Simulated assay, not measured.
Amino acid sequence: MLRVGAHVSIADGYPDAVEHEGELGGNCGQIFVGSPRGWAVSDVDDAEAEAFREAAADRDVRPWIVHGTYLINLATPKDDLAAKSLDCLQAELDAAAALDIPYYVFHPGAHTGAGEETGIENVGNRLSDLEVPDGVTVLLENTAGKGTTVGRRLAHLDEMVAVSDHSYDDIGVCLDTCHLFAAGYDFTDDASMADLIDEIRDTVGIEHIHYLHLNDSKHPLGSEKDEHEHIGEGEIGDEGFRRFVTHDALCEKPMVLETPVDEKGYAWNIDRVRDLRTEE
């Protein structure tokens, strides 16, 4: 069964986020548990958590994923920023656990001049300080590679896990299509799609890809620019997305859209993904 949804707001409360997802036509979803550009994490009381769980079960909207705040930077050479990032990340993880949300994804961060290898090691070492709640898997998101961000290569994500005291039992990967394309991973023809799948198998492993972010790219292959476009209307295009969302190795992974919010909106993009799945 295709599980596809979109990022929705918790402004009206966690239970209403499920209703909003259903209105878009989604059957899985993503939320923040605080401001995406702040450090504060919203409280989750027992009653609201229960209402969220019941709404998700009643509508069969699953699995959910929590996206970490954009301020988190585990790659940083600054100890104070790293400590603040870990405190926030732990609080967001605990909120996911309180809501019975099985996945939590975050961007690894930027080394800001300390060097890529140092940044990768910093991420792995700091992952070791996390207490991952039972029932939650932490997902590293691949990056577009802009500036000094780390995680643009799949092998780098694999190295972060290897450096940490955790294993793939606690940590996995969320693949973002725009980030992949911007970082130089092509999947717009059969040969390049096969190469991408081979590289996934040789690094993080298909079985450790738990979630997909579907976003087209405003910029060309290898641009390292992270600007999302509507599905099929960017540089990846319909054919690239058709290959991606129908590939045997990926088609059963839950998929969430982070496409632009404008006149088309998430519902249009959800329908487009479903159309691509049936237009083979």
Rank of each mutant, 00 (worst) to 15 (best):
M1Y: 11
L2Y: 09
A6Q: 07
H7S: 02
H7L: 10
S9C: 05
I10R: 09
D12G: 04
D12R: 15
D16E: 15
V18G: 09
G26N: 11
C28W: 12
G29K: 08
G29I: 12
I31Q: 13
V33E: 14
P36I: 13
R37Y: 03
D46I: 10
E48Y: 02
E50N: 11
E50G: 09
F52C: 03
A55N: 02
I65T: 04
Y70I: 02
I72E: 04
K78E: 11
K78C: 00
D80A: 06
A83M: 01
L86I: 10
D87S: 11
C88L: 02
A91G: 08
A91V: 04
E92R: 06
L93Y: 03
A98E: 13
A98S: 15
P102S: 11
Y104T: 06
Y104F: 15
V105C: 13
H107D: 10
P108K: 12
A110W: 05
G115K: 08
E116T: 15
E116F: 01
G119K: 10
V123T: 04
V123E: 10
G124M: 07
L130F: 07
E131S: 14
E131Q: 14
V132C: 07
V132F: 07
P133Q: 06
D134R: 00
L139Y: 12
E141A: 01
T143F: 02
G147S: 08
G147A: 10
L154N: 05
H156V: 05
D158I: 00
S164H: 08
H166K: 15
S167H: 13
Y168D: 02
Y168Q: 00
D169A: 11
D170C: 07
G172P: 03
V173M: 06
L175M: 11
C178S: 09
G184R: 08
Y185D: 04
T188D: 08
D190H: 14
A191N: 13
M193F: 10
A194L: 07
I197D: 00
E199T: 15
I200K: 03
I200C: 09
I200F: 09
R201A: 05
T203D: 13
V204N: 00
G205H: 01
H208Q: 14
I209Y: 10
H210W: 14
L212F: 11
H213Y: 09
N215G: 05
S217V: 04
H219N: 12
G222M: 07
G222F: 06
E227Q: 10
H228N: 06
G232T: 06
G234H: 05
G237V: 07
D238H: 04
D238F: 09
D238S: 12
F241Q: 01
R242S: 13
R242D: 03
H247C: 05
H247M: 01
A249I: 04
L257N: 07
P260T: 02
V261D: 14
E263D: 15
K264A: 13
K264L: 15
Y266T: 12
W268A: 14
R274L: 12
R274I: 11
T278N: 11
E279F: 05
E280Y: 03
